[in-house]
Amino acid sequence: MSHTLIPRLTTGDALARFTLVESALRSGRNAADLVIDEAGVAVPHPTGGSAPTASVLGRWRAEVMESLRDVKTGSVNDNAMHSMRLGQAISEVIDPSPSDAAHDGGWAFLSLNLFPDILEARWPLKDGRLPKDRWIGKQAGRDRNYLKLAWRRWQLLGPVMVEFNEPFGEDEFGSLLERQAVARNVRLVRFAAREVATYQGAFGRNDFTRALMMGLTAMTGPLQLDVLDDHELEALVRATAMQIDPHSSGLGA
């Protein structure tokens, strides 16, 4: 894990930079021309790790961009693959400290300064506006910053996505990780994701995912699932899936 801390933009600086980027894109400028690969006004947390040098920021950008070379956006499948490869690249290249990554200012810096072209490829102008929550995050409440979500999803479900070559879509991620208290049980979510990845039953996969997670969430009332071992958790997820659809494939367990 990296102990290099990501420079942070304050809310005011992030919003001002967002306005500039949006305006530049609206006037036809190329997003890659808007890259700022130095900290500038962004300041990393003062303690607990080291600040990145300009060469480190340059390496972060070069290596993440190389990882996304030839990865397209547009279709549902392309977008899912883009998110997965991006999350993997952030994990492997930047490798944020979870403590540092909990603060939205660092993600705003990465989105608006270091990787505006990645954001623009996935979340471009629509009716002349950029989706602020994807570019900066929500600022208060649950974050929706694209880079942060891609990284977080890779952290949680990267092994499952690789094992089944299955980049989950927005809806499936939404259902798998919606209940935060359940999502903090990483082993449980991974077993559920394996079940979803191999599902071949009669329900739509999104409906199956939602029903599966509702069933598992209901069990967290009488049971503390954290104490179950892997075999027991796997069996629990399998049994819950079978209750929803007896024809679920069973390949995931």
Partner: peptide, 13 residues
């Protein structure tokens, strides 16, 4: 109470 102060005009507000 978490409070931040900045120029709304520069931030697009």
């Amino acid at each position: 109470f978490p409070t931040e102060a900045f120029s709304f005009a520069a931030a697009g507000f």
